[in-house]
Design a protein around this nucleic acid. Structure first.
Lengths: 222, 222
DNA sequence: CACAAAAGAGAGCGCTGCTCTTGTTTTGTG
DNA sequence: CACAAAACAAGAGCAGCGCTCTCTTTTGTG
């Protein structure tokens, strides 16, 4: 148990220092004063180690999002939305290589093992919770009607993941969810270089628009 | 010249087959019937080869976007917007590993060499062109006023990249641009697994919303 | 204490990127 | 045409990698 954690810690250190590509089992073992083959008692392969780090990263990010949300439990839904978005961005900026690990490019076609699902869902659940509360407090605007071709799919998405929210809201949320990660990824991976310099105000602006898009009533801004 | 192209072609083949991580100079050389050291006459390192592939990928994607745009030269701005978005998505689905190479995780902190800039800008320029034309044809709605904290930055962005567009439009476009890649990335990298099943209608829905967000008047949908 | 299970060590296989030296071929020019 | 220069290719080799196999040591339990 101890050793497993020590391996993950050292691996995370190397991940943060050099990125996933340069994470080497042999280097981890060396740093821990063991021989590389001994590591295989704890992780059957390098990929399994990475999967463990992925789950931890999802959990860490989810925890940040939940903490940011809970710290503003009394605020309005739009403020909580923005705060959670900023917490996710903050986590990403603080752990860029871990963010890359979970939202970067995982060999297209790769299907995450089921074990990652609960951890990966945590941030999304926070957003769903915000919208649910907003709806109950009548602070959620009904979106425009969905195009006909999307109605069935949106109904299914709602039934599967948030049966108490209208399909219009769920569809808008899923889009906003993906779009949020586009904003963060562009900042983190350099696409905003030479384009957006003052990132924080821009991010606040963008996520406020996202909030509006999902039906949250955004208070007049300063 | 010939050889450089042959190397890139074979490298692209391996990239498409196995992903960037497994692209091996030795394997490329083997397949070309040469010895690995001979490759270094043409590319000083594996990373340089990848950079060349990155530029080609940007160009290929840009070309798709431009072609989709030009094919609809007579249509309204909103249709052209949607068509370009769909062309980008189509290119990404057809070249997932190349997409991952350019919009996946390029070692956070990595700054793309200047040589990639023109190629990388092509898609964005298409969008700017659409908005410019829409504005000239009075089909562009003025966005809501920007928050005070973003006004200077938005003015700078507009001055740098699209001086004939209002800052409100430029800020909204940059956000939509990043958000588009969030949508595509989530689909391609598996985040939509078990969430969005019927991807095409969802994508059309999402990019229509993006079009609306940048001020394009979207015709009533079926 | 005895013994089985768990953990670590070590050697080794085939692969990688990359370098250095050697040999060969192509090319431009007097 | 002859010859030097430049371009190209080959081969051996270094250090590193993931991973496997076998063997030894440690450790917990009857």
């Amino acid at each position: 148990m101890e050793v497993t954690a020590a391996i993950k810690d050292e691996a995370r250190r190397q991940l943060a220092a050099e990125g996933a590509a340069k994470l080497s089992l042999r280097a981890v073992a060396r740093e821990l004063g063991m021989v590389s083959s001994a590591l295989y008692r704890y992780f059957p392969s390098r990929d399994e180690l990475l999967t463990a780090l992925i789950i931890d990263a999802y959990d860490s990010m989810g925890e940040s999002a939940e903490a940011a949300h809970d710290a503003l439990a009394d605020a309005g839904p739009a403020q909580r939305w923005t705060a959670v978005c900023e917490a996710v961005r903050g986590w990403a900026l603080a752990h860029p290589h871990e963010y890359a690990l979970i939202y970067g490019s995982p060999v297209p076609g790769y299907v995450a093992p089921d074990a990652t699902i609960p951890a990966a869902s945590r941030v999304a659940l926070v957003f769903i919770g915000i919208l649910r509360a907003a709806r109950e407090g009548h602070h959620l605007a009904a979106g425009p009607p969905l195009p006909a071709e999307l109605r069935a799919e949106a109904a299914r998405m709602a039934a599967d993941h948030a049966p108490d929210l209208p399909p219009e809201t769920v569809a808008a949320l899923v889009a906003a969810w993906a779009e949020l990660y586009g904003l963060i990824g562009f900042e983190l991976f350099g696409s905003f270089n030479r384009v957006v310099e003052d990132r924080e105000p821009f991010f606040r602006y963008a996520v406020t628009r996202l909030a509006h898009g999902v039906g949250l009533e955004v208070p007049a801004q300063a």
